[in-house]
Design a protein around this nucleic acid. Structure first.
Length: 642
RNA sequence: GCUGCUGUAGCUCAGUGGUAGAGCACUCCCUUGGUAAGGGAGAGGUCGUGAGUUCAAUCCUCACCAGCAGCACCA
């Protein structure tokens, strides 16, 4: 006699086990039609499954976000059926829902190509139109294994074998086709709807392990209706439009070429952006009481052995030898061991702690070729790196200070929202469990003190310590992990860093590794995509162009340029033999924020006609006024505050 | 690194078993034009690299390099 509690608090009694479908029908025909699935005591289930005991329930309709995930999961099943019916002999593996869609991994000798998509999609739409109900069956383990093995589905059989012994093996049928699946599912294939599209194919390792066979993965996107699908496709176009590689080329910011794979040739305009950002960061860290240092690029192998990096990352380091000397050196892949050397140089007192040591550290890592991506993932990069040597007692206060500094920087750079993840011990790690207990506890305590809220990111810590990851949200809703704060009790030990305490004895400092931007290369890539190349004035590679209308105004245009330059602005004169329309068009396409147009009138009156990027109107100003206005606007945000 | 795809002028791309084309950009000439393309002429490429097949390869085959997407990686 289950008593079913509805979300509004009303309770309904039923005589015996009752399915979600029946409950919905008892409430009303509208709901019976709309209900796709049911949540029983917070657990999502098939609507066709009976509820046997008292429970609080909630129906999932198409309006719920939850339905999206189910639509995608079901779409993956529909895809798998379509593929197996069109390409016999293809083995199925897994097919989950993911952000924005779904995928299914198949094993097939010949990989799929996008040319196969129209046929597969057509078959999928037929399956959706047939509206086969999803029927759940519980099978004995042996039967399930035998069934899939008999069909030559060795991956599925392996999955079942690896399921925990006490787990029920559930099979979902849709018409003739069936799949091992935990569920839950929608009512039938028609609930998937038609707002889906196959997107791309890619290789993927079986179980994500590069030692396993490569499967062929088909990605799709699926939504509740056509409008959502179109919005998503539009978002993809938007991301492509903002691609930093494309904009970097268009705006002449940088390039990369074969002779220096994974390393950036910064052109004048890109380098201006870089230096403006670096100057800003230098001021920020000076305000926050950091001391800036500089350490060598090439460091003897012995230091990397001592730090533990040689062991773990040797194959990702650039190694150099000298013919006349029997030495092996490595281009530094990170700065911490070098910073410890400065810390160790001479006796340190507890009075010097916390000691905040910063470096715009140029690092090199031999990243796998497939990981490289524009200037976002490179082999030569510069970190806004710093190490804070402090006592355990100081971790909390330093965390508070760091989060404050980082928040200000992100805000100044135009990112209002960020979130924090707490990454704890990875499987492969240095240091004892006690050390990790201590480090994790200290960092959690620091977060509590700082009033910092975080999500967990289990097993993703650095090999020497737990870390906080700071994740930005950009203008089109994408997340970028940039900042980090890592507690390290291991490296000071390994490299024997110590200070003299109040008690005249030697003590181990704690090292906090921290970065805000991460690397300049990657962060500038993010900035480019955030602004779609239309930078705020202080960051713009070319801030102003003075465009003359007639030859007579040329000397005046050059004079205006000189005055703007004197005020510290980056300015170009455009006195080419072109019509003003063409000049406006070109500089607008080049994303120059301000165009000052000068003709005979302006030359005589000592004025400029100012036009903003994206605007259509103009503003006539005396030169002096334009110069002071733009100079003020072009100040970095921290300088405006003073 | 793995799987798939791609590599032709500075950029975006077309094209063919008989050593190549467009638009934009560039140079020069005409034009002095008032807020998103004025007109004309010209120059520019050993078709990613190397080997093979062929009378003949930018095109076919193989290897390598690089790029793109995804996976794996990211101290």
């Amino acid at each position: 006699m289950p008593a079913i509690t509805l979300p509004d608090g009303t309770v309904r009694q039923f005589d015996g086990p009752v399915t979600g479908t029946e409950i919905a029908a008892a409430i009303g025909p509208g709901l019976a039609k709309a209900a796709l699935a049911i949540e029983v005591d917070g657990q999502l289930r098939d609507i066709s499954r009976p509820v046997e005991q008292d429970a609080a329930i909630r129906f999932i309709t198409r309006k719920d976000e939850t339905s999206l995930e189910m639509i995608r999961h079901d779409a993956a099943h529909v895809l798998a059926e379509a593929v197996q019916s069109l390409y016999p002999g293809t083995q199925v593996t897994i097919g989950p829902s993911i952000e924005n869609g779904f995928y299914y991994d198949f094993y097939r000798n010949e990989p799929f190509t996008p040319e196969d998509f129209p046929a597969i999609e057509k078959r999928m739409r037929e399956i959706v139109a047939a509206n086969e109900p999803f029927v759940r069956e519980a099978w004995p383990r042996d039967k399930a294994i035998r069934f899939f093995e008999d069909r030559g589905e060795r991956f599925k059989a392996e999955l079942i074998r690896d399921l925990p012994a006490d787990e029920e093996i559930s099979i979902y049928r849709q018409g003739e086709w069936l799949d091992l699946c935990r569920g839950p599912h929608l009512r039938g294939t028609a609930d998937v709807g038609n707002a889906f599209r196959l997107m791309k194919v890619a290789g993927a390792y079986w179980r994500g392990d590069h030692r396993n066979p490569m499967l062929t993965r088909i990605y799709g996107t699926a939504w509740r209706d056509q409008k959502e699908l179109e919005a998503h496709l539009h978002q993809l176009e938007e991301a492509e439009r903002r691609d930093h590689r494309r904009i970097g080329k268009e705006m002449d910011l940088f390039h990369i070429q074969e002779e220096a794979v994974g390393q950036v040739f910064w052109h004048a305009k890109g380098w201006r952006l870089y230096t403006v950002l670096q100057d800003y960061m230098r001021r920020a860290q000076t305000r926050a009481d950091y001391q800036e240092v500089r350490t060598p690029q090439l460091v003897d192998r012995s230091l990397w052995e001592a730090s533990g990096h040689w062991d773990k990352y040797r194959h990702h380091m650039f190694v150099a030898t000298v013919e006349d000397e029997d030495k092996t050196l490595a281009l530094k892949p990170m700065n911490c061991p070098c910073h410890v050397q400065i810390f160790r140089h001479g006796l340190r007192s507890y009075r010097e702690l916390p000691l905040r040591m910063a470096e715009f550290g140029a690092c090199h890592r031999y990243e796998p070729s497939g990981a490289l991506h524009g200037i976002m993932r490179v082999r030569g990069f510069t970190q806004d790196d710093a190490h804070i040597f402090c006592t355990e007692d100081q971790i909390a206060a330093e965390t508070v200070r760091f989060v404050a500094m980082l928040s200000e920087v992100y805000k100044d750079l135009g990112f209002e929202h960020f979130r924090i993840k707490f990454a704890d011990r990875p499987e492969a790690r240095a240091g004892s469990d006690e050390t990790w207990d201590k480090a994790e506890a200290a960092l959690k305590e620091a977060c509590r003190t700082a009033g910092v809220e975080y999500e967990y990111n289990p097993g993703e810590g650095a090999f020497y310590g737990p870390k906080l990851e700071f994740v930005l949200r950009d203008a089109i809703g994408r997340d970028w992990q940039c900042g980090t704060l890592q507690v390290d009790l291991v490296l000071p030990e390994r490299l024997d860093a110590s200070y003299i305490g109040e008690d005249s004895a030697r003590h181990r400092p704690v090292m906090l590794h921290r970065a805000i931007l991460g690397s300049f290369e990657r962060f500038i890539g993010i900035l480019i995509e955030q602004h779609a190349g239309k930078f705020p004035l202080w960051l713009a590679p070319t801030q102003v162009v003075v465009a003359s209308i007639v030859t007579d105004a040329e000397p005046y245009a050059k004079d205006v340029v000189a005055r703007l330059r004197k005020a510290g602005l980056t300015v170009e004169a455009d006195t080419r033999n072109e019509k003003i329309n063409a000049k406006i068009r070109e500089h607008s396409l080049a994303r120059v924020p301000v165009i000052l147009v000068v003709g005979r009138k302006e030359a005589e009156a000592g004025t400029v006609a100012m036009r903003r990027l994206g605007g259509v109107d103009q503003q006539i100003l005396p030169v002096a006024e334009a110069v002071s206005l733009l100079a003020e606007e072009a100040k970095a945000p921290d300088l405006k505050r003073n």
